[in-house]
Design a binder for these strands. Structure first.
Ligand SMILES: [Mn+2]
Ligand SMILES: [Mn+2]
Ligand SMILES: [Mn+2]
Ligand SMILES: [Mn+2]
Lengths: 142, 142
DNA sequence: ACCAATATGTAGCCTGTGCTACAATTTGGT
DNA sequence: ACCAAATTGTAGCACAGGCTACATATTGGT
């Protein structure tokens, strides 16, 4: 009942965002693989993420538990509608973050690298501001 | 021996950054408490972070293992020179991230919130770009 | 058709980061 | 000086997300 300090509230939200991060990256990656290759195999997911296939399979299990993905034994992974919606949101946001970083003057490779972590900590308000900033920037120097 | 894909390298670096994040937040917070209150007690650290005191004490143990902090039984926590250096780096970076977000048009409260997560994924190249962007921005609209 | 290579899945381990419950110590008010 | 409250510390649990080792299934080349 004593007011949670605003700092504690912020840290709590940051922890919550972090807990979502891995699911977001998996959803985005699975959607990419499905679009590019027509299938998303655990081994490919693992190689792209730089983790062992056992780790990937375990996390795919979490995606399934949370209703984001489906798969049958020895078949590839697919996204549920919720998973696809998440992937779309995440892909859009990822690209916007990269674009804003580059617009600010961050070198492309650093922008790609840092966006991979930053993207998970962008609130809706920040997303709107990024979008508006990009439009203004593109309009100001065409 | 086969080239690690660039995507895998990025994800790996993001994981490494995440593993550092908690230490950075603790160092920053302990330095703040020491500066403000003259002491950094586990209970205060816990309350500011919004976690139980047991959790805070365990993480303080990790800071000590990694040479960032010291403490004696039933006394407050102090930073080693390495811990102070980290705290300074993190505080500067945190403020810069907030300033850049606000300059871009992010509302202040969202900027404070999102910076808490974003700050841990800012590479040196991005830090330089942020700094340059802020100078240009401040210079362009004084 | 078969066998080897590949892919998938399982088991079990570790660490980090949360928690609650309980124990021990210190502190402060009377 | 003493007792109660606050603080600190410990024990033990859960879960996420890494790993290796091993088991099982599928695939493809001969
Ligand atoms: Mn990411
Ligand atoms: Mn991404
Ligand atoms: Mn932070
Ligand atoms: Mn911070």
């Amino acid at each position: 009942m004593p007011a949670e300090t605003s700092q504690a509230r912020r840290f709590g939200k940051t922890r919550a965002a972090q807990a979502q991060a891995l699911l977001e990256d998996y959803a985005e990656l699975i959607a990419d693989l499905l679009a590019c290759d027509g299938e998303a195999r655990p081994t490919d997911i693992a190689r792209r993420l730089g983790v062992s296939h056992a780790t990937a399979i375990k996390t795919i299990g979490r995606l399934k538990r949370e209703g984001l993905a489906t798969s049958l034994p020895y078949r590839g992974v697919f996204l549920t509608p919720a998973g696809e919606a998440l992937a779309n949101k995440v892909r859009t946001r990822h690209r916007l973050v990269v674009a804003v970083l580059i617009a600010i003057g961050v070198p492309a490779e650093a922008a790609e690298q840092d966006a991979e972590g930053i993207e998970h900590h962008i609130s809706p308000a920040t997303l709107r501001a990024f979008s508006a900033f990009l439009k203004q920037y593109a309009g100001g120097a065409p």
